[in-house]
Design a protein around this nucleic acid. Structure first.
Lengths: 148, 148
DNA sequence: CGGTATCCTATAAGATACTG
DNA sequence: CAGTATCTTATAGGATACCG
């Protein structure tokens, strides 16, 4: 009678939030975007407890944003690592946009703790609202159509 | 002894999530971005209960993303409306990026319920990761520096 | 090191009823 | 229409202890 798996949301933003919208998931995705790979690093850098780190990392793997892989440094035993999948890489605009808003409006003492620059050019990396033709789209030029 | 107001996070993303990171806040900001102005519309369109709608709208006003304003249609009594402030408009890249990821990876039956187009040009509106010089920045070209 | 099991608290969120 | 008051449930998340 009820849906066996997943969520039946009518809005894709709501569906996204149901999937990865918790604070802990977003912090873990932030860390993955910054290059973190190992379980203990995720827990320390996000400040999340280990049980929560484990549960959310497993959810993100299930949701297809992260993948586990074996990882062997020469002469050491096999370890695990978590890496962004293509769907996880597609999430980078969200992380970038959150960081950008936070840097501008939720200033923390001492300033932002990380900086992201474009390799070579050195420009600051930001998320921009544009159309698929590459034009910047200010809010006044965005036309919203409700399809249903 | 403790901080009287606000949150002292070390990361601007975490600070942002503490401020407006709940599912209900993000759904309300989505609606504000789509042009919703009135209390009852916010509640119906997000599917949130009225108490939650009231509490979160007040939080968003306190946080400076929305502002209340009197609003009078000719011949009718004064009503209230909620509008995005400049800080709220700055949040549009986050909403756009969430919608974009959801449209691509969290498909809902019947397809996305809204479409956003660039006025005139007609191109689909998306969030793109770029540098401040305007170059598109693929994940491999983003250089992360931890400042502390 | 990379987790799991168990238990606990805080808060997100809904239901219902009511008010100016 | 635009909320508020009160109550309840579900879940996010932490603390602690333990395991292969």
């Amino acid at each position: 009678m009820d849906a066996p798996t997943g969520v039946r949301e009518h809005c894709t933003i709501a569906a996204t939030l149901d999937l990865v919208g918790s604070r802990s998931s977003l912090l873990l995705l932030r860390e993955a975007a910054l290059g973190t790979r190992r379980f203990a690093e995720f827990a320390v850098r996000t400040g999340l407890s280990e049980p929560m780190t484990a549960r959310r990392l497993a959810e993100l793997v299930d949701a297809g944003l992260l993948e586990r892989a074996d990882y062997r440094e020469p002469g050491r035993r096999v370890r695990q690592e978590y890496r962004l999948t293509p769907a996880g890489l597609d999430f980078l605009p969200v992380i970038t946009a959150l960081r950008q808003w936070g840097d501008a409006h939720a200033g923390v003492p001492g300033g932002p703790p990380i900086a992201v620059a474009h390799a070579g050019c050195g420009g600051e990396v930001v998320a921009q609202v544009r159309c698929t033709h590459g034009h910047p789209v200010p809010p006044s030029e965005a036309v919203v159509t409700r399809l249903r």
